[in-house]
Design a protein around this nucleic acid. Sequence first.
DNA 1: ATAGGGTTAG
Length: 654
Amino acid sequence: MFASAPTSLHLSHQAVFGVGAKRQTLTRCRPLSSSPGAAQPANANHLIQTLCANGRLARAAALLPGLPAPTQRTYESLLLAAARARDAALAAAVHRRLEADPVFRSDPFLSTRLIEAYAALGALPAARQVFDETPVKNIFVWNALLKALALADHGDEALARLADMGRLGVPVDSYSYTHGLKACIAVSASHAPASARVREVHAHAIRRGYALHTHVATTLIDCYAKLGIVRYAESVFAAMPERNVVSWSAMIGCYAKNERPADAIELFKDMMASDADLVPNSITIVSVLNACAGVNALSHGKLLHAYILRRGFDSLVSVLNALMAMYMRCGCLEVGRHIFKWIGHRRDVVSWNSLISGYGMHGFGPEAVQVFEEMIHVGFSPSIITFISVLGACSHAGLVNEGKMLFESMVEYGVTPRAEHYACMVDLLGRAGQLDEAMELIRSMHIEPSPQVWGALLGACRIHGHVEYAEIACSHLFDLEPRNAGNYVLLADIYARAKLHNQVGVLKELLEEHALEKVTGCSWIEVKKKLHSFTSVDNKNPPVEQLQALIGEFVAQMKNQGYVPDTGIVLYDIEGEEKERILIGHSEKLAVAFGLINTCSGEVIRITKNLRLCEDCHSVTKFISKFTEREIVVRDVNRFHHFRDGVCSCGDYW
DNA sequence: ATAGGGTTAG
């Protein structure tokens, strides 16, 4: 009676969960209680499985060698646990045991689990070996290999394996495509560019009738989003018959990632209007909040805030982090700080990073450093992004010594400085006028300086009129990013201010020769929940004339007080008066004028600009804030400027 | 048995 207990227990376990019988048909099954003398096997199998489930891997591993007959379930438990705990030694031990097992050595189910475990451990060669040694490769085995290739960013090999499947007549399924596509978008060293690989798999999926499968199509959208090919993502999305929250979220995320936040918000509205059963989840919310932050659409962000509270999404830290970041990026630092407090003990590194960068972008350098110190004090480990945030904050506030100390301290926290951190330091030193030190730092770099590093130097050269270093920076930038018109324009600007007109001409020819278009200055403002945007070149709209006239009146007032328009920067060969007219038409001034006309007195005017704020707009906006007694908050590409009573929060340092 | 979308950065 008692002797047979383990066996009957085992059987009833299978009967209760209803899995054993099914698995017996799928795979070979070891006969239960093969030797009557060993009451151990069934017991030991259960024990190992229990230990694995409770994370006690060392004990489970110790029992394995002495176990004469492990079951499929035992192997599976061990492999899942090894993958979860990143225990490479355990995975290898199970692998060895499995190879010596006459019953399970060729079992495709366990091969799949083994490949998955090796993939999770980053051991691609071992995963490949298991795959090669599996005699009967079912679709699960193939898909596990494709997943391993995706995790290891081996796009070309994934493509080759998909081709193998076709040649061998293995039917490819939707899982094969999703894994294959994920492998394709890797940018690591490979033969074919990522976009070519994705298009190849896309074409393959079309031929096999899988391109509209919900998971496959959603993955395609995400791939094209990551590659920046928005129109392909759009066409996949448009062709889908059946869209769910995930596909909508992927398309919204595509716009948000590719600098089209306004389209992301519009698509979210479409989603809400399209189907009552389509309910946004936390990921949708986070994407849309990010888009709101991107266009400074505070009123829409507030609507989402209300939605979050109504639906209980405020229980999720990720949502609160995104909400907090949205408020701060829309100019409401205080609200962001309040939400940070509200998150309380649930805050994670992202929350801390957000607060630091929030202070940074609003020019509160010392506060950002203080938050950094507090974060360390309460036991958080700073990440790569923490340092980018805090160094950026130092840069905006001109905290050179603090920045240097933080940069030096990075190694102590186990964070190796990357090009991004060097770019922050070059920016910090350069803005502060320490151009020689900035140059020295670049020369001391043990990694290749990125375009961002040279770009930071070039930006500093523009502020301080340093022609020599600007030329050095550009000699690299023209090589690294030949199609970036901004670099040519900056250098031309530096030459123009140095009155080197011949060189200005040379650069203008270069721009035309390569048909490079500079980014048009664009500013926008939200009035009555609607975004109104202005560009500098657009002076055909009748309302713009009215706005220019208003600015003209302010400028006339300012001239009486000794203001001289900053016409040194305009690159065209035109007369002084025409230059002034162009300055008056700068998009940021137009947006301010529009805000003055269309908002009530006392209301804060919030403007967003896609480029750095120019000196002339900065001076004029300071004047307007005093003259009209209006608070004006301008967000440019880098930071916030709070204009109040003729003074800007940046202290004219930006 | 396996799979799809998100947050912090200059």
